[in-house]
Structure formats: C-alpha cells, structure tokens
Amino acid sequence: MTIFSVYIINKAGSLIYHYDAPNTTRPAVEKTFSYPLELVLKVFDEKVTVAFGERDGIKVGHAVLGINGIPAEGRFLKDKREILEVLSSEKNYPINVKFGRPPLSINERIMLASMLHSLFAIGSQLSPEPHSSGIRTMETDTFKLHCHQTMTGVKFVIITDPKQGHVDAILKKMYEAYADFALKNPFYSLDMPIRAELFDNSLQSVIEQADKYGISNI
C-alpha cells in the first residue's frame, strides 16, 4: 500500500504541483564492463538508452546515468565527453557504467499532465452514456492512477500501488490541504505552480498517515 506520486493539474491543464514519494526512486544498476560492450545502445530523446540486450538487471529502455562515477547529462558526461564515444574507445575499458530508468524531467511531467487532461476530456466525450465523467481511475499491473476533479475544475491525481484502498478519502484530504495551505496563502496566485513549504508538509503528512495507519486515522 503506497502512494508513489501526486500531481495537481489546474483547470487549463497545466501542472501546478507534483510530488514523488522518496522511497520510490527508480533502481539503478552499476556494472563493470570489459571491451567490447555486450549491449546495443542508441540515442533516444537526448539520452543514451539500451536498445537491445538485457542482463544483470539492465533492461531495454534503461539509460546511462553515469560512467566511472561521473554523472551523465543527456548524451554527454558531466566533463563534456560524449557518452557513446567514451564507450566505443577500447582504451577506456574496463569501464563502470550505471544504468537505470531516467527520472522524469519537469518538462516531461508538464507534458504528461496536459496529456492526462486531454485524455480525461476524451474519455468523457467518447462515453456511450450521456453525462459521463472523465477518467477516474486507470490501472496497469504496476500502478493505479486515480483522478479526482473538483467542481472548480482542478484535478488531483495520485499514482498508487494497485492495492491501495480508501483512495477517495486520501484525495479529499489532499483537496483540504490544497484549500488550506495553497489557497489561503496570500502570496499564492491562482492557477500558478504551488511553491509552499507548509503545503508540502501537510501533503506529506496525509501520505505518511495513509501509508502507516490506513485511512481511518487521518
């Protein structure tokens, strides 16, 4: 029973808040290779990713996160060398490469949020029944997405373990935290990203309590 992340989307479809639970960082695998590399790599979306060949927990789709302890920045290492070049020259071997799912950048999150906003609308329009709501839940085998749209059009989206229960109560608590700590902050302007420590704290305590004690105590 876990909440992985929280997104708040305003009525225009832009992301105004996101939070990732700290215990759900994506696992990284570090391994020392000798020449030649047994993985096929390619540049995708400005990242060096594994195109073919899975071994020792390194999966297709994982990106190079660092080489010999030097972190990667896009296709390059922090010291400006190009990753693919470093990996193709034999003199650099043996080499230690860190692979993992690349974290979502803030731009990707904004894009996903507005995509969900449109999907929500499409869901409602494609419905065979009249007066259908938009997408309330979306389930996969690793997570479940729950979306609650308030009457004013703000969407609260949480991504949880598929087994997480009492989601409605959690969403309601989050709405209350938003009403209290975002909207009552005189320096917060409506529809803008929420940057308020008090809101962060109250949201985290909702999540923690939901995780620890179940919902009955929050």
Partner: peptide
C-alpha cells in the same frame, strides 16, 4: 475565488 475551494473541500 479561494474560499469556494475550502467550502467544497469540507
């Protein structure tokens, strides 16, 4: 415009 959210939330 802010109070309405508080109202709806509770």
């Amino acid at each position: 415009v802010r109070l309405i959210e508080d109202f709806l939330a509770r």
